[in-house]
Design a protein around this nucleic acid. Structure first.
Lengths: 240, 240
DNA sequence: CCGGGGCTTTGATCTAGATCAAACCGACGC
DNA sequence: GCGTCGGTTTGATCTAGATCAAAGCCCCGG
């Protein structure tokens, strides 16, 4: 079909649900031809999940992959005695799931209310096998996630509590809204306890450090969740 | 060539250097046809580097990728004020390098004496573009590295010093010798200072915890570097 | 045989962040 | 309007691990 070579000029052949989807622009679906997208969309299902919903459990088989369309998903690992660590946050339009293995090594939980586009395992794996460009795109995201995980290892292993909290705020400011490079205003997608689990701290320490940033006029916080960053450069400097 | 379909039965067509190489068995070269291996081997070069040699610098362009053939490579990140974190260790036959980007996000340094098989950027990227199986294999390794990075985030964020040191020893016991699942005897590839940088501790704390494991008869240490694990199960239990 | 330089161990003290405890705040149901 | 409940803040105290300090060990070179 001649149109296939002009997929970026208009998208009349693209499924309605996909037309405004972030994954179509910056996510994995951007590499699919309209015909592939139509075929894939027959197998996908958009689902909404409330904050707190468990999307996949550590060491449990997962029947489907997903793209995050809206909201934030947290990936956690837990030691036998209950100590918990958040090992990653996924924002729209990130791909969600551990490719090529039956069960996930992490627990995935909705941090905020989320909207996911679920893709059955088999359908996606078939498409990957047929279309190397899709695997390439997913490889790119995986490499980015690995870079980010390693950055975070520095934060966990070598930064002070103050630097950790500043780093967290900066991470959210740069990742929450896919349309902005650095957002000055945003709602925190995590509770203080979750932030602590992401930073390797206690919730009391997180709260104290946020209070300090507020006292120092770097940020303002309204309703516990809403953050205004007065001076992004100053916040960045505090990241260590 | 009919032989191509029988590449696992014998390897008379495989370059001499590759025949006993770990990468040919468990590394990325395992997916290459003999003909591809011959072509690739024309561009590769085996190099030895002494412990401490810098193989790639953070934010500096890298001219080639490599496979680790022998020894251990440490990947580090450094904050402006000099605080350092080791964000990964690469053992034979791991692939070394950040695909699809000009410059590395980490510093790569030989932790022990190492032997590398260097592949020029362009040659490998061309081969990847031609052979999706190779990208698939590299994707598998990248996913495994991501899993390991996330496991380590739990260690960094939530474990005690004692658990961190035990976890490090267990990591080495399971990764250093590609032919063994769990080695009871091995030489530590890192100094106490490096171990500290990997665990987010000080070298004094590492030393104290090693002394404690020795006092508790979990391990013995000879010549600072050589470790004997008396009871692997007990070591594992101490990993938290 | 002696001296110096890495690396490591061990000891004494200090402190960032944990833990324990109490109060606060806003939302919600009754 | 009032109690209660999840999440948060703030305060007082405690402790794991950092920091500071001093040997010790091993290897190498003279």
């Amino acid at each position: 079909m001649a149109m296939d070579t002009r997929k970026d000029i208009h998208n009349s052949e693209v499924p309605v649900l996909c037309q405004s989807c972030e994954a179509r622009h910056n996510g994995m679906c951007g590499v699919l031809e309209p015909s592939e997208l139509v075929a894939l969309s027959k197998a996908t299902r958009v689902v909404k999940q409330p904050a707190g919903a468990e999307l996949a459990a550590e060491a449990e088989p997962v029947a489907s992959y997903a793209n995050v369309m809206r909201g934030v998903v947290k990936l956690t690992k837990t030691l036998e005695d209950g100590r918990q660590q958040i090992v990653g946050l996924q924002f729209a339009p990130d791909f969600l799931g551990r490719l090529f293995t039956q069960s996930s090594a992490v627990t995935a939980q909705a941090a905020s209310d989320v909207e996911l586009c679920r893709v059955p395992r088999a359908a996606l794996e078939r498409l990957i096998a047929e279309n190397p460009a899709l695997e390439h795109r997913l490889m790119q995201q995986t490499l980015r996630e690995l870079d980010e995980a390693r950055d975070w290892m520095v934060t966990l292993g070598r930064k002070t509590a103050a630097e950790k909290v500043a780093s967290f705020l900066y991470l959210i400011a740069t990742h929450l809204d896919p349309s902005k490079e650095e957002a000055r205003h945003f709602d925190l997608p995590l509770t203080r306890a979750d932030i602590a689990d992401f930073l390797g701290l206690t919730l009391e320490t997180v709260s104290r450090q946020l209070s300090k940033l507020r006292a120092d006029q770097v940020i303002a916080i309204a309703n516990n969740r809403h953050v205004d960053v007065f001076d992004m450069a100053r916040l960045k400097k505090r990241c260590g």
